[in-house]
């Protein structure tokens, strides 16, 4: 192997750089945020789907909603118990979950996801 030493040194430096975030954050696991519900959400008891499904797949549901609303004009959704909901993130979801900072952002930050919903959709005003 030509220049074996240089190659190996380069590899070590490269891998070291690649791993640096892991070393930097080692032993400092961030705590998973707790879900915070508003009074209104607590009282409603039922969300669109059950709690586990909402946690795991709310973005799939929202994607489904925006697609069927905007593209197919289907604006209503019938819940398991028969209640009909107006399919709208801004009007329906955020009516109960008016605490975007605690309900949405906290967990999205923890998961390092940045959905662009709020570039257009208006978040409810929150009291600081």
């Amino acid at each position: 192997m030509y220049d074996g030493g240089k190659i190996i040194a380069g590899l070590i430096i490269g891998i070291g750089l690649l791993m640096s975030p892991f070393f930097y954050n080692a032993g400092k696991a961030a705590k998973a945020p707790e879900r915070v519900l508003t009074e209104k959400a607590k009282q409603a008891k039922e969300c669109i789907l059950d709690k586990a499904q909402m946690t795991a797949s709310h973005f799939k549901l929202l994607d489904e909603w925006r697609h069927t609303v905007v593209r197919d004009g289907q604006r209503y959704y019938k819940r398991a118990d028969g209640k009909v909901l107006y399919k709208s993130l801004q009007v329906t979801c955020m009516d109960c979950h008016s605490n975007k900072a605690n309900f949405c952002d906290q967990c999205h930050n923890y998961m390092a996801v940045t959905p662009y919903c709020w570039d257009c959709h208006i978040a409810p005003e929150e009291k600081k």
Binding site: E64, H67, T68, R71, G73, Q74, Y76, Y77, K78, V84
Partner: peptide, 18 residues
């Protein structure tokens, strides 16, 4: 599309929910 998902899910219920 989304409509297809609804059709598989509950044929006939579509009109009721929208």
């Amino acid at each position: 599309g989304g409509k297809a998902a609804f059709d598989i899910l509950a044929p006939g219920e579509l009109e009721a929910s929208t």
